[in-house]
């Protein structure tokens, strides 16, 4: 995804140093690194461990526990599709099946294209206007197959 800087150790060290004073600083640091670089590079582990006086195992454990933190740079656009119950009630699983059948894109899996990754998310808090998706921080409601294909950049927006 465009908009992220290439990983650099000095930049990362600055971010870590700027937040290390916080109580329980690990998550704020990880969010800040991911916000800057699009992911958390393995080289961040010793940096954070040093700054917070933690073991590398503890830092690695935290990174690997949370679904949000990525350990490789994102290659394409990321579409987060809600697949929790309220969106299931409005057919989100049908959308998932159609996406694979019509476009070869597997949610949370290997797809025919690298241009977009569709990820499962459980609840975006838009349960009265589902199915819902989150793209670049924008919440989209009443998603149908056409709209999902647009969000994935597979077809241009109809209007």
């Amino acid at each position: 995804m465009a908009g992220y800087r290439m990983w650099d150790d000095d930049g990362a060290r600055q971010i870590v140093g700027g937040l290390a004073h916080l109580e329980g600083a690990t998550l704020p640091i990880l969010h800040a690194l991911q916000g800057e670089f699009g992911y958390v590079d393995a080289k961040a582990v010793p940096l954070i461990a040093d700054a917070l006086n933690l073991s590398r195992a503890e830092v690695h454990g935290t990174i690997s526990f949370y679904h949000d933190f990525k350990t490789a740079p994102p290659v394409g656009r990321v579409v987060k599709l809600c697949r929790a119950e309220a969106c299931q009630a409005l057919g989100c699983e049908t959308l998932v099946a159609q996406l694979e059948r019509d476009h070869g894109i597997r949610v949370d899996g290997q797809s025919a294209t690298d241009a977009v990754a569709v990820e499962t998310v459980y609840c975006l808090g838009n349960c009265a206007l589902g199915p819902s998706a989150l793209v670049d921080g924008a919440l989209i409601g009443r998603v149908d197959a056409q709209r999902l294909a647009e969000l994935c950049g597979l077809v241009s927006a109809a209007q």
Partner: peptide
């Protein structure tokens, strides 16, 4: 205000506290 990181279990209060402390949300 602190952000979670996509773990449903962190709505459980003790897991939430672990997460606030910077640990795995166990």
């Amino acid at each position: 205000v602190r952000l979670g990181a996509g773990a449903y279990i962190c709505g459980e209060e003790t897991s939430l506290l672990e997460s606030l402390e910077g640990k795995r949300g166990v």
